[in-house]
Computed example of a mutant assay.
Amino acid sequence: MRIGLTGGIASGKSTVARMLAERGALLVDADQVAREVVLPGEKALEAIASAFGQAVLEADGSLNRKALGDIVFRDKAKLARLEAITHPAIRERMQHRIHSYEERHPDRLVVADIPLLYETKQQHLYDGVMVVYVPSDLQRARLMERNEIPAEEAERRISLQMDIEEKRRLADWVIDNGGTLAETEKQIDLFWKSQRLP
């Protein structure tokens, strides 16, 4: 079985991913794959340099993330252009890795950790979607503490994603991460048993 794991920013998705992995799930992390596809020698990096110029490259040929960020985060059209390059590359590599896991370990749960799963309309690629949920006020407080940012900036970042209540409504499984770690562990155990996972 393959599931998509998502949630809001600062909802504790990484914690839930770790708990699933500790029980034997195989993880494919979209953020990690996103870093891989822009390494020197990768087609996506060549396409980024072609689209945005050599200024987005370091002297050693690696991606200058700050320079690229300065270009795309001020201009929605340029951000869309970047995403048109990176998203297909990320998706293709993730699907390849998932297929590889499924062939080698057909009895294991494969979890694809994708922050923007609903926003990028990938839910149909999975047998179900697990959403890590926290109420929005707790989400904001955690984000402010984790990133050391003011409330307005936390609100802005949260607003860039689909509303957490909407994700919760669409989910096949909801893990409420608003309580203690022990309470979250308990929900993961219940999920694991309900799916009869080894």
Rank of each mutant, 00 (worst) to 15 (best):
12 G>I: 00
14 S>V: 06
15 T>F: 04
15 T>D: 01
15 T>E: 03
21 A>C: 12
22 E>W: 03
25 A>E: 01
26 L>S: 08
29 D>S: 07
30 A>V: 05
30 A>G: 06
34 A>S: 13
35 R>I: 07
39 L>A: 14
40 P>T: 07
40 P>E: 08
43 K>N: 13
44 A>T: 02
45 L>A: 08
48 I>E: 02
49 A>S: 15
50 S>N: 12
50 S>C: 15
51 A>Y: 00
52 F>G: 11
54 Q>C: 04
57 L>P: 10
57 L>V: 08
57 L>I: 10
58 E>W: 06
59 A>F: 05
61 G>F: 09
61 G>Y: 04
63 L>E: 00
63 L>Y: 01
63 L>I: 06
66 K>P: 07
68 L>C: 06
70 D>N: 15
71 I>D: 04
71 I>C: 03
73 F>W: 02
73 F>T: 00
75 D>R: 02
75 D>M: 07
77 A>L: 09
79 L>G: 00
79 L>S: 06
81 R>M: 08
81 R>S: 14
82 L>Y: 06
82 L>I: 02
83 E>I: 08
83 E>V: 02
84 A>G: 14
86 T>G: 11
87 H>T: 06
89 A>W: 01
92 E>N: 14
93 R>D: 01
93 R>K: 15
94 M>A: 11
96 H>C: 14
98 I>C: 11
101 Y>E: 05
102 E>W: 05
102 E>R: 10
102 E>V: 06
103 E>I: 13
103 E>L: 12
104 R>T: 12
112 A>N: 04
115 P>Y: 00
117 L>V: 11
117 L>T: 09
122 Q>E: 15
126 Y>T: 08
127 D>H: 13
130 M>V: 15
130 M>W: 06
131 V>S: 03
133 Y>D: 03
133 Y>R: 08
134 V>F: 09
136 S>T: 14
136 S>V: 11
137 D>V: 11
141 A>R: 09
141 A>Y: 00
141 A>T: 08
141 A>W: 05
143 L>Q: 00
143 L>W: 01
144 M>L: 09
144 M>D: 01
145 E>G: 13
146 R>C: 05
147 N>P: 07
152 E>Q: 12
153 E>K: 12
153 E>C: 00
156 R>P: 09
